[in-house]
């Protein structure tokens, strides 16, 4: 027995039509979303790779700078050692010159004494000449001492400057080594992040394929059954309208 109204059939027809409009294109939308997401994922992975590359480059640069600093320290310490090796010789020369000066002063003193007890003007003149000669040699001794003492002071200044540079370089090296350790740690974390991203991307790719497939499948089967039902409802409406239009006289 048939128990339905055209009003009911039209309500159903309307619901079915609305549903068709609502699900139309679900498969295409899912595919587009999939493309967008995959593209965004690849950008993220490229960024992660660039971070790893940049970190590795920084490690290379820091390692190089550490090696250069080490070499610089070695060179400066070598220079300090060479300068220090010259000091004893110079000090010995200064002592020797002081000794010579003392000896010459003694000779001058002895000649003065002999001049005091000398009556002859010619002899006194000769003694004076000798004293003058000795004084000249004393003066030369003193000049050489001064020159050596200046050179020694300059050498010590140079040593001190180099030592300061060595200390600064050592401080810089400590900082560089600390930075290198931190960067190596960071690099390991970035590499780990990249590997996990790659694995996660594999899962995203696979799940997106399943999602798009499910969307297309749902759109296809629900659209087909809805069209079928809508056509059936149309036939029912047409049948009732034909029945109502029949003239029974």
């Amino acid at each position: 027995m048939v128990q339905v109204t055209t009003e009911a059939l039209r309500m159903v027809r309307s619901s079915l039509t609305d549903f068709l409009a609502d699900v139309e294109g679900i498969g295409a939308r899912a595919a587009q979303q999939s493309d967008n997401i995959l593209h965004a994922c690849k950008l993220q992975m490229n960024r992660a790779q660039a971070d790893v590359d940049q970190s590795e480059a920084r490690i290379v640069a820091l390692t190089k700078e550490i090696r250069q600093t080490e070499e610089s320290i070695r060179n400066m310490e070598g220079e300090i050692k060479a300068l220090a090796a010259r000091v004893p010789g110079m000090e010995e020369q200064i002592r020797s010159l002081r000794g010579q000066e003392t000896g010459l002063e003694s000779q001058i003193s002895a000649l003065r004494s002999s001049m005091d007890s000398c009556d002859s003007p010619e002899a006194r003149e000769q003694i004076q000449d000798r004293i003058n000669g000795l004084r000249e040699r004393v003066s030369q001794c003193r000049d050489q001492q001064r020159s050596l003492e200046n050179a020694l002071r300059n050498l010590e200044d140079q040593k001190a400057r180099l030592q300061k540079q060595v200390n600064d370089a050592r401080s810089r090296m400590a900082r560089l080594e600390s930075d290198l350790a931190a960067e190596r740690n960071r690099c390991n974390r970035l590499r780990d992040k990249l590997e996990r991203l790659k694995m996660a991307f594999g899962r995203v790719e696979s799940d997106l394929q399943d999602y798009v497939s499910a969307a297309r499948g749902f759109e296809s089967s629900s659209t087909e059954s809805t069209h079928r039902n809508a056509s059936g409802v149309d036939l029912c409406i047409a049948g009732i309208e034909s029945y109502l239009a029949t003239d029974l006289k």
């Binding site: 109204t5 009911a8 059939l9 309500m11 619901s15 609305d18 549903f19 699900v23």
Partner: peptide, 18 residues
């Protein structure tokens, strides 16, 4: 959308008994 469809169909129930 599916819920709306189910709801729309259910609304016709008092008028469609077969």
């Amino acid at each position: 959308a599916v819920k709306k469809l189910s709801g729309g169909i259910a609304q016709a129930s008092p008028l469609w008994k077969d």
